[in-house]
Simulated scan of single mutants.
Amino acid sequence: MIATTREHIRASMLNMKWFMFFIFGTISVLMTFFPIYLQHLGFEKSAIGMLMAGGPLMSIIANPFWAYWSDRTQDIRKVLLIMLSGNFLIILAVFQLEQYAWVYGGMLAFYLFQTPIFSQSSSLILNAIEGTPHKFGSYRIWGSLGWAIMAIAAAPIVAYLTIDRLWMVYCFMMIISLTLCFRLPKGGTQAVTRVGSGFKALLRNRTFMIFLLISILISTPNGLNGMFVGIYIKELGGATWLIGWSAFLMAVFEVPVFLLLDRYLKKNIHTMLTLLAMVSGIFAFRWFLMSHVTEPWQIISLQITHSITFGVYFYVGTYLTSLFVPAALRATGQSTYTLAWNGISGIIAGFLGSHLLQAFGYDASYQGGMVLCIIGMVCFIVMRFRVPNTLT
């Protein structure tokens, strides 16, 4: 009986790795090629930016909504199943639309189910491995592998099928993700807390709120880059397969980064805040270099630094969030962190950033991102010396 239970747990944990691989790979294919699809429909940069900003806009509603039900039901797997099912059905309809208003409305509905997937997956991993020798990074790297491998594998397929049939590739991969989701652990915690009162306490957590505000500064230029880097490559004369390579190099080197962090990172607040200050400086240097590129290969080369910038920030930010919030509200905490990183900053990048990009060009936009990251770096340095190393 005990052996059977252990075997079931082992299989469930292995399945969790494959789920991370395919769900990240599925979203990677859409996020990498969907802006190109929108450009194919004839939409301008500002229109594409506003449409892509619909995701962060809806995440303001979607993340707290789904996190509430995850915390209340203590069954993240069930919540993920509902989100993936809605994701699959709505995207089928969106790819049949061509008028901007209808596409925009359809994508808002899609984002309601799509935007919280990563934060809920992270919460499920953290809850499933709690009290075990397993490390978060050893599961999250499968997401990075999926993002990298699926983007580069899908590029020639999308080129062969043409961008009009992007939906076929996406939906096929989503079916695999749904199948794997059925075999995930529930991802609940033993602790029980009143979710409503706990969420209010979370909003009153001054340290956590400051951390989120700084994260918005850092992630806004990253969001703008993510939305338009594929179009930038195309405008510099790059082929579709180069866009796939860009996504591949952006994610594949996250794997050694996560493994190194798993092994060597000291899980205390001062160390992690110091690391975030350093990463913010690297972000600033990355955007400085991006403001001077003239060839597609230069963009692709700089995408490698994404593994250090986003990879380290995501990993450390996830752990800091788990220190800042109670265990029973971990899904809510991770969703709030995602809301800041992908939500509010994505809205700013999509609505304001895309208009600045269209008006002033890529050089000025990336230089503005460099300034934001320098400000964020200074804020993290100050925070490092003002926040205690442990919170009670």
Rank of each mutant, 00 (worst) to 15 (best):
C373G: 10
L145E: 01
M278S: 07
F324A: 00
V378W: 12
L92V: 06
F33R: 10
I36C: 03
N127H: 14
W167L: 10
G55K: 00
L273H: 00
I27N: 07
I125S: 05
L14W: 09
I141C: 07
L391E: 00
T26K: 08
F360G: 05
S246F: 10
N225W: 09
W142R: 01
T220A: 10
T162A: 13
T179L: 15
K267V: 09
P156W: 04
S59C: 04
I27L: 10
Y313L: 09
I243Q: 05
V371I: 12
G196S: 13
I308W: 08
C181Y: 03
L124V: 06
P156A: 04
F288K: 11
F324I: 00
L51C: 02
G353Q: 07
I129R: 05
S197R: 14
Y315L: 05
I76V: 12
I60R: 03
P116L: 06
M377H: 08
Y170L: 06
V229P: 03
W245R: 11
Y319H: 15
K267A: 13
K17V: 13
T179A: 15
T207I: 11
T321R: 12
A109E: 04
Q298P: 03
A62E: 06
F385Q: 14
L38H: 02
K200W: 11
K78Y: 09
V387R: 00
T5C: 02
G196Y: 04
M278K: 07
M31D: 04
E98W: 00
I141H: 01
S354D: 04
P133S: 13
W66P: 04
R286W: 02
C171T: 15
L41S: 03
F110K: 01
R384D: 02
V371M: 11
I344T: 03
L145G: 13
F385D: 11
S123V: 09
Q99H: 10
G106L: 05
A359K: 14
A201N: 15
G196K: 12
W102V: 14
I91V: 15
R77I: 02
L259F: 05
Q298E: 14
A328E: 07
L212D: 05
Y313N: 08
V325R: 01
G281T: 02
T5W: 06
M150A: 11
M227R: 12
G137F: 09
F34P: 00
